[in-house]
Design a binder for these strands. Structure first.
Lengths: 112, 112
DNA sequence: CGTATATTCAACATATCGGTTGATCAAGGA
DNA sequence: TCCTTGATCAACCGATATGTTGAATATACG
């Protein structure tokens, strides 16, 4: 809870990049370090490090310390806020469609 | 269905802008024209027109023709694909947390 | 201590984004 | 036909995003 508009901005924008979405997918199976997250991608570790900073600023992940490593952990709270935001408007739209269908059906019946 | 990776890119990125999210919120209550969508914002119609093009390219809205107007309609399909994507990883993470909690609980009990 | 490893910082190039203004196109109405 | 309205196109600008390379920092280990 307590996810403000700026955080929604950052979180949605963060997920609008395939590299970062792949990182989220990886982290859903457990924590991983920068090196581990970098492995599948043909980009430098520095670039991966910055992707991680973007995810962290968005509140999508958190980081701990383990010696010289800085493992990343996925934080489901903001993800939940995103689905809540989306569903609010998606469900309202679907309700509106159903009402419209009902109206059309009534009109058709009256025409017969 | 049939929402590919590029479309996820475009859809998430499209929602990473407060103006476009406000437009989605507005359209969940019914169709609206460019002028109607522009009304709440202190930006030019041209800028609004381009926001709409971004939403349309993302598959989040569609457009019809009504004389000289081009009303926008919210398309819930891609929104649903976004929540599906998010929930896949969010729920897996939450399951993992619950498993971890269970393990910790067992360890604590054994220590007593 | 000295070196290797994990990560980050800084500076830079390039591309995209979000806004502007001005011109253009398309449809309606006097 | 002429004028208005709704919307878009094109060119431009400043800010931000994403990548690079090279240097710096911090921890681990022999």
């Amino acid at each position: 809870m307590a996810v403000d508009d700026d955080q929604l901005d950052r979180a949605f924008a963060a997920l609008g990049d395939p590299v970062r979405r792949a990182m989220i997918a990886r982290l859903s199976r457990g924590p991983a370090t920068v090196n581990e997250l970098a492995e599948p991608f043909p980009i430098t570790k520095q670039a991966v490090s910055r992707h991680i900073q973007v995810l962290e600023a968005a509140g999508l992940i958190s980081r701990t310390r383990d010696g010289q490593r800085r493992p990343c952990h996925l934080e489901p709270t903001v993800l939940e806020a995103l689905t809540s935001w989306i569903d609010e408007y998606r469900l309202e739209t679907e309700r509106r469609f159903r009402r419209l269908d009902a109206v059309l059906k009534t009109v058709q019946e009256q025409e017969q």
